[in-house]
């Protein structure tokens, strides 16, 4: 089917929605221009309604033929909770993109992907692109428990998968860095590492690979506003210099990244985020109570 990428007909409609866990949903959205231009590492900015926040989410998949893009959203705050409450057939108000700088795909040899939580969703297209480029792909997937582990099967189709959980309910009990240490100890150190997940996890992945001098890249998730390089809110410190995650990233050399500064900046609105979610939850319960 030929899609007019300049048409607004049916734009941003959720053509398919799947619940991956209690809090994680997969949305397949009609956005033919984005689908036609997307590459691994690109992200989009979503808004669900008037007055809604601009939420950046990395693309998990895309189909120029269907004119669709796929994102996986974890309900953490009010905006993501609202987005996951949208149903198949509903539409997002805005989907902007593709944004960011795609990941450079080349032949490294063995590429290790280290994904944590919903970060696994963002790791998937990158791992797939490396596999397609002739690399051997090994993945370490970390989650708090089995219920929060996503895309294990899809990642397994790309190569060996090692699972770690905090409670041992799936794979090995422990941290992703324990599994990394095992690989290095077994003489199976990779040629490059890509990591996406919580900031502390990425920080320790970078620290673990540093002594081995393995090129390591992390996808950073600072607070973002416009996503077009205009506000500088998403500035991160790379090799002592400021970079904008929205246009220069979001993937950067993890060994040059100041993760501690990133952690402080992502906590900027913690109190407001909590207030907003609590208000939403209360409002929601009240409404449920009326039925």
């Amino acid at each position: 089917m030929n899609h007019d990428i300049y048409s607004t007909e049916g734009l941003y409609k959720i053509v398919e929605k799947t619940e991956l866990s209690d809090t994680i949903s997969k949305h397949v959205i009609y956005a033919p221009l984005i689908a036609a231009k997307a590459k691994a590492g690109h992200f989009v900015i979503l808004r669900s309604r008037e007055g809604g926040e601009r939420i950046p989410v990395t693309l998990v998949d895309w189909s120029p033929e269907r004119g669709t893009v796929t994102v996986i959203i974890q309900a953490i705050g009010k905006s993501t909770t609202e987005m996951n409450a949208l149903k198949q057939g509903d539409s997002f108000l805005d989907v902007a993109g593709p944004l960011g700088t795609p990941v450079e795909i080349k032949k490294w040899g063995t590429v290790l992907g280290v994904g944590g939580g919903v970060g696994i969703a963002e790791l998937y297209p990158i791992a797939r692109a490396y596999k397609d480029a002739g690399n051997k792909v090994v993945s370490i997937l970390g989650a708090r428990n089995r219920g929060l582990l996503i895309l294990e099967k899809e990642m397994a189709e790309l190569g060996e998968v090692i699972v770690t959980t905090d409670d041992g309910s799936a794979g090995k009990k422990g941290l992703v860095t324990d599994a990394m240490a095992d690989l290095y100890a077994a003489g199976r150190g990779p040629d490059a590492i890509f990591t996406i997940g919580p900031i502390p996890m990425m920080k320790f992945v970078a620290l673990a690979s540093l002594p081995h001098k393995t090129p390591t890249f992390a996808s950073l998730n600072p607070v973002m506003l416009d996503g077009t390089g205009m506000c500088g809110g998403c500035r991160v410190e790379i090799g002592g210099k400021p970079k904008f995650a929205c246009v220069d990233g979001p993937m950067f050399d993890a060994h040059l990244t100041n993760f501690d500064a990133l952690m402080k900046r992502t906590a900027a609105y913690r109190e407001q985020e909590k207030e907003s979610l609590e208000r939403y939850a209360k409002d929601h319960q009240c409404r449920i109570g009326l039925h």
Partner: peptide, 27 residues
């Protein structure tokens, strides 16, 4: 934290309506 470019500060308020938070969602 607390240091804004004028672009970010003005965009939060003018485009995103942050002055109406939490009625709007951008803080």
């Amino acid at each position: 934290v607390g240091v804004y470019s004028s672009n970010e500060f003005l965009t939060r308020v003018n485009l995103m309506g942050a002055h109406n938070f939490p009625e709007t969602d951008t803080p």
